[in-house]
Amino acid sequence: MNAPLALRCYALLLHLYPAPFRTTFGCEMSEVFGLGLDEAVRRGGWMLIAFWLHESLSLIPAALAEHSRAWRQRRRDPAFLAYIDLLAARWIARVVSLLICGIMLSGLGTLAQPIASPTNLLQLFGLGGLLLAWRWERLGGIVISLSGLLNSLIMFGLMLLVIPSSPIIGVLCALTWGGPFLIFGWLFIKIGRRARQRAA
């Protein structure tokens, strides 16, 4: 392998390092590698092979150590921790809301009422909001909350009409139908707000 090609290969291998490290030390490392390579070429034969092996085999553990150090430093940064919290909250909300979507959609078909009943349509409205929240968290959150509120009110009203003597059953039904939407709506609105604050 000729020297310029070896230097280009080494410059490519430097991409294994974290970007800030590469920015600070990349040029110097290439320079030092070039000087070592010149010396190994002068000495020739096995020295060149030994030099290449020594440099390339130690590069991977050294790059891993730098990544690990960079990660430890970032973990001490409150802004980074807040970002990780936001990311975790966002994905938990997304995955759990998908599960809720699945459960509710499978439940709609088994109900005794027609699929186009007002409560079913409101549920579908809420489920649409959950999907909307994947892309537009605040808007999705508002749609979900609205759906949850209307679902709860309608269910409470219906149960009061059916069993007027037991409002507690009405409250329980209202919470069962609208509760998950209210929780996820609030969560997505909060995540959206945090994301906007972070972006600002």
């Binding site: 490290f21 600070t24 030390f25 110097e28 490392m29 030092v32 590698f33 070592g36 020594h54 440099e55 130690s58 590069l59 553990p61 050294a62 790059a63 150590a65 730098e66 150090r69």
Partner: peptide, 14 residues
């Protein structure tokens, strides 16, 4: 002690 370029610069950075 025969330091490679990667090991040397890791140590210098630290």
């Amino acid at each position: 002690v025969n330091l490679s370029t990667g090991t040397l610069y890791g140590a210098l950075s630290r």
